[in-house]
Design a protein around this nucleic acid. Structure first.
Length: 508
DNA sequence: GCCGTTTTCGGCCCGACTGTTTTCAGTCG
């Protein structure tokens, strides 16, 4: 199987870590980290790009050298730099540097002065009190390391809706402080990433310290990691880390920009500011000592010669160049949504009736919904066989006549069986406006078989949509093995999307 | 190691907090 982007990114990250411990040029280290993020966030696999001759060196942060290294990794699976670094620095130095309070410098000191190579070595030395004998180390750090070794930190990311609830609750609590001005959740939450590592909250106020105090006194705060006049970090009972930043109102825009990130986007913006002889930080945009602007994000972007970049795009994946050329694409927003093509009702495992959902959808300004209950194989969801499905069509006819200026499309989410056949006969599917096909069992087929299975389903002329084509559940289930490039590739002599059955709506 | 409507060499984001110090290095975001 071709090398995945995530594997290439992990190799670059590990190399960066070891280079850092070696005390290498920090900018070289940053280059590996930046390239790792670029590769990780690519919309397609680097291996596939190489196959069709796309130039990796045109990607941001990837030059001739790294493009060559990626090509070698794709070809051979090997990354010589990382292997030689591992020979040079054997053991678990990388994992040690991830412990709280330890970074590359201290790990190097530990390795050089105490010969510590593994986490076990580290624990032994700490228990003997050897660490605090070293310059720059103290009793508190030693205790912290022992505690961390005893109870390893869980590398957990939280799903967006969960963080949303926490953010709202914290904002309500902080808002109870009379010195508190605006409260906003920034960071990857505001960029709407599907999972969030920690929650970044920004507060404006004139009397900084009291809001931080209030966060430490929050009922769900389990531990205070840092607490200064402008910055407080706590861990909640849920395990979610919250970073609270306090700034004055006139710095709001610059601080929001800084705290929303991403880090790579910030660095790119600060570089742009430097190009003009300015300095950008969380307090504003400065020419020398003079503050040019910073009250809103909009004015900072404008001064830098850029269109406003929505938070969802701030990943340094080319958005800054597009903003400079005034060519940013428009994001799809809620008001653009005209309908919903994947809906379950009480007929299978939904929670509401078709009529209720149609009325709510219409009240939201939708023009249509498609009823797509499960088919019979999904017995746990009370899936529909031919008879019940045909009965449902009668109900939809009746509702369409009744509601008016709104269309309920007749559809189904039909199961793709293990061999690629569908769970309902063509004579039934042919009666429908829309047919969604998807997989709900046998997730563990080999890649080729799984890919064939889906492609065979797509060969049925009634199928309009393949739903959840990777089967991934964010944070819960890994995607199943599937050659997505092959699924998306049209058959020879065929036009792209030839398989799509036009949706018959009666209106356009 | 990357990058360049001044540059192919010489830059490379910037600030807060902690613990260890007695003015600051290391870490972190």
């Amino acid at each position: 199987m071709p090398v995945q982007n995530a594997e290439i990114a992990a190799m670059f990250d590990q190399a960066a870590e070891l280079l850092e411990i070696k005390g290498e040029n920090p900018f070289r280290i940053r280059a590996y980290r930046r390239a790792a993020r670029t590769v990780e966030n690519l919309p397609k696999s680097a291996a596939a790009m190489l196959v069709v001759g796309e130039k990796l060196s045109e990607l941001p942060g990837i030059g001739k050298d790294l493009a060559g290294k990626i090509a070698t990794i794709v070809d051979t699976g090997k990354f010589e730099l990382l292997e030689s670094l591992r020979r040079e620095l054997p053991g678990e130095l990388g994992q040690m540097a991830a412990l709280p309070g330890l970074g590359p410098k201290r790990v190097k000191t530990l390795a050089d002065k105490l010969g510590v190579r593994t986490l076990e070595d580290l624990g032994r030395a700490a228990r003997k009190g050897r660490l605090q004998e070293l310059r720059g180390f103290g009793a508190k750090l030693e205790q912290g390391i022992l505690a961390a070794l005893d109870k390893p930190v869980r590398m957990t990311r939280f799903k967006l809706p969960f963080v949303e609830a926490e953010a709202k609750s914290i904002a309500d609590w902080l808002g109870g402080d009379p010195s508190c001005g605006r409260v906003v959740a920034a960071g990857s939450y505001r960029r709407r990433r599907d999972t969030i590592g920690d929650l970044d909250m920004l507060v404006t106020t004139r009397r900084g310290a009291t809001v931080g105090d209030r966060l430490t006194a929050y009922e769900n705060t389990a531990k205070v990691l840092a607490h200064g006049p402008t910055w407080t970090t706590v861990i909640l009972r849920s395990g979610l880390q919250v970073d609270l930043r306090v700034v004055e109102e006139e710095c709001y825009g610059a601080a929001l920009l800084y705290f929303t990130g991403s880090k790579a986007h910030n660095i790119a913006l600060r570089n742009l500011a430097n190009d003009d002889g300015w300095k950008l930080n969380e307090y504003g945009l400065f020419a020398g000592e003079r503050r040019i602007c910073g009250k809103t994000e909009e004015e900072v972007y404008e001064k830098l010669g850029l269109d406003f970049i929505p938070p969802e795009m701030r990943e340094d994946r080319g958005e800054i160049l597009l903003a400079k050329k005034r060519a940013l694409p428009e994001l799809v927003s809620i008001s653009d949504i005209r309908g919903d093509l994947h809906i379950h009702s009480k007929w299978s495992d939904g929670a509401a009736s078709i009529a209720d959902m149609a009325h709510v959808a219409k009240s939201r300004g939708y023009s249509y919904i498609a009823m797509t209950d499960h088919s019979q194989r999904v017995t746990v969801a009370h899936g529909l066989g031919p008879d019940r499905l045909l009965r449902q069509l009668n109900e939809i006819d009746r509702l369409n006549a009744e509601i008016g200026e709104f269309t309920i499309l007749k559809g189904v989410e039909v199961d793709i069986l293990a061999d690629g056949h569908l769970d309902l006969p063509d004579r039934v599917l042919s009666r429908l406006d829309i047919v969604i096909a998807s997989i709900h069992y046998k997730f563990d087929l080999p890649r080729d078989e799984q890919t064939e299975r889906i492609i065979r389903a797509m060969d049925n002329r009634h199928v309009s949509i393949i739903a959840h084509p990777t089967g991934r559940l964010i944070g819960e289930r890994e995607p199943y093995q599937i050659d997505m490039e092959r699924v998306l590739r049209p058959h020879e002599n065929e036009t792209v999307f030839w398989r799509s059955t036009p949706i018959r709506t009666g209106w356009t």
